[in-house]
Computed example of a mutant assay.
Amino acid sequence: MFRRLASLLILVVAGSCSGDLPSSAVSDSQAERDFGILRSSTSIVSLMRERNIRSPDLSAPDPLLQLQRELAKSDPDGTFAGITYDLTRGNSLAVDWLVQTPNRWGRRADDLTWFEMGCKDCEPGQRCPAALAARRVTAGTGGVEIMGIGRLGAGITEDFANQSELACDLMFGAAHKSIRIAQQDLGFRLGRSDTLFAESALDEMIDLMERDGDVYVVLSNPGSIGNGGSPHYNDVPLQVLAKRLKDIVQKRIDTADPRSRYAIRKGPDPVNALLCSRFHLAPFRFGPDDSWPGGKTIANHSKLWMVDDRIFYIGSDNMYPVNLQEFGFIVDDRKAVDALIESYWNPLWQWSRRASVSGEGVEKCIFREIIE
C-alpha cells in the first residue's frame, strides 16, 4: 500500500476538499439506527457505546494495533478492511520527510513569493512539493507504524464506512496530556440555518480538559477564500464555537448537580475557568501580519491533529461534519512527531498564539465575553 505513497504534505492538502460541499451533513438527532445494524448515518457515540469500542491505551505497546482492533468492531464483516483502515508496519520515513515551504515562518505577508508547483523560478535552495513527488515512504525496511485511514463519501454505501472520524475520536479519548489541532474549522454552517459541530470530538476534548489536559486549536480566519475561489471558512465565527463549548460544559455541570446553576457562586465561574485555562484557541498566523496585503484574510487548510505529542494524523479529513470522501495517515513514530513539532507546530503556535482568544496568558478570554 505504501510503496506508492507520495510524501506527506503539511501546509497544502488538496484534492478531496475542493469543490462544492454536498448538503449531506447529519445531526445526532438524525443519526438513528436499529440495534445491531450499522448504517452510514450511525452516530459515532452510539456506535462506540453499543459495540463497546474503546480508546487505545497509549502507555501500552502498539497503540495503533489496538486502534486497528477497535476499528474492526465497526466493520463486523471486514468489508472495509484495507480500504478505510489499514495498519502497516516496518515503514521508514526519509530524514527530510516533512515537506513545507521553507524559511517562511515569521516573515511579513508582503515578503512572501508565490511559487507555481513547477517551481521554475525557485529561489536558491527552494524545494517545492512538485520537486519532491518522487519521494516514497519505504515499506518493510524500518520500524514506523502507519495506519491508512479514511471514510467513504455520501451515497457510496449505506453501511458505516467512516473509520476516519471514529479513529480521531478514539485517539482523542486516549489522550492524557494534550490534543493539538490545525484545521479549517470545527463547525459547518454554509448554506444552513443551524450550525453543525463534531460533537463527539468536542466531548473528547472536554473530557481531556476535565482531566487537567490541554487542547490547542488553530483555525482559519473569518471569510477566508482560497486562490481558486473555494471557501476556507465555514461561516462559523469563533464566538459560535466558544458558545457551543461553553454550553456543553455547563450542561455537564447541571447534570451532575441540577441545583448548581441557582447556587450563590463564591468563586470563579467553573465553566470559564476550565475553558479559559485549558482550551487554547487561535486563528491562523504564519508571521506578524493579520492578513495578506490588501486586507485579504489568511486561510488555514491544514488537516492535522496530534495526541500527547506522540501520535499524529495528517491527510484530507476535515473535523467539521460534512460527508465527503477522505483519506489520511496516522503515524506513531517518536522521531517523526519530534520533527513535526519542531518544524511545523512550534512556529505555527508561536505566531498564531499572538492572536489567541483563549488559553494561558489571554486577558480577554472569549468565553467570558459570551453573553448567555
Results as ranks from 00 to 15, higher is better:
R3S: 09
L9F: 10
G15T: 10
G15L: 07
D20V: 14
S23P: 06
S24P: 00
S27G: 10
A31I: 01
D34T: 05
G36F: 07
I37T: 10
S40I: 06
S41E: 10
I44S: 01
R49F: 06
L58T: 08
A60T: 00
A72F: 00
A72I: 03
A72W: 02
G90L: 03
N91C: 12
N91H: 02
L93V: 02
W105A: 14
D110F: 13
D111R: 09
D111W: 11
F115N: 13
M117R: 09
C122S: 13
R127Y: 04
C128H: 06
A133E: 10
V137P: 00
T138L: 10
G142C: 03
V144W: 02
E145G: 05
E145K: 08
G155T: 01
D159H: 12
A161R: 04
M171F: 10
F172N: 01
A174Q: 03
K177C: 07
I181Y: 00
G191T: 05
R192S: 10
L196T: 01
A198W: 04
A198M: 07
A201W: 08
D214I: 08
V215S: 06
Y216H: 12
V218S: 02
L219K: 03
G226H: 02
G226M: 09
P231T: 11
D235I: 03
V236F: 04
L238Y: 04
D247F: 08
D247Q: 12
K251F: 04
S260V: 12
R261D: 11
A273S: 15
L275F: 06
S277W: 01
R278E: 07
R285Q: 09
G287I: 12
D289A: 06
D289M: 06
D290G: 13
S291V: 12
G294R: 07
I298C: 07
A299H: 05
H301V: 12
S302L: 13
V307D: 03
Y313T: 03
G315W: 06
D317E: 15
E326W: 13
F327H: 14
A336L: 04
W345M: 13
Q350V: 04
S352M: 08
E360N: 11
I366R: 00
F367G: 00
